[in-house]
């Protein structure tokens, strides 16, 4: 499965467009990580726990998108975009979407 945020793939032709595919993942903060983050709010700096948390959530969302694309018979997802929104206090939604296509 080829994932790209360009509209084309060099040297290959798009044979068929299959429409939009998407994946999302909603994550809440971890209590242990929250305490550490509270400390970091005094000293400033990177919140490593959150960096990892959000990265994992994004990977999961991407996996879901890939599953959906495979389900409709695509072999690549082009023009991929990521987006984040906070749905509630302490929870964030990571959203990824793109165009499923069949490449030759």
């Amino acid at each position: 499965m080829l994932i790209s945020n360009l509209e084309i793939v060099p040297g290959r032709q798009v044979v068929q467009h299959l429409g939009l595919v998407q994946g999302s993942s909603v994550r809440a903060k971890h209590i242990g990580r929250d305490i550490m983050a509270g400390l970091k709010n005094v000293f400033g700096g990177e919140l490593k726990g959150y960096t990892e948390l959000l990265q994992e959530a994004r990977e999961e969302a991407t996996q879901r998108m890939i599953q959906q694309a495979k389900g409709i018979g695509a072999n690549a997802v082009l023009n991929v975009r990521f987006s984040t929104s906070s749905v509630a206090q302490g929870a964030a939604e990571l959203f990824v979407y793109g165009t499923a296509v069949v490449l030759d």
Partner: peptide, 23 residues
């Protein structure tokens, strides 16, 4: 993409960081 003499391979890369301001 510019016209490369050879066909390049493409792969999605990303980086993220969560950073906090001090008190």
């Amino acid at each position: 993409l510019p016209n490369y003499p050879q066909i390049p391979r493409t792969v999605l890369v990303a980086g993220n960081v969560v950073i906090s301001v001090d008190y």
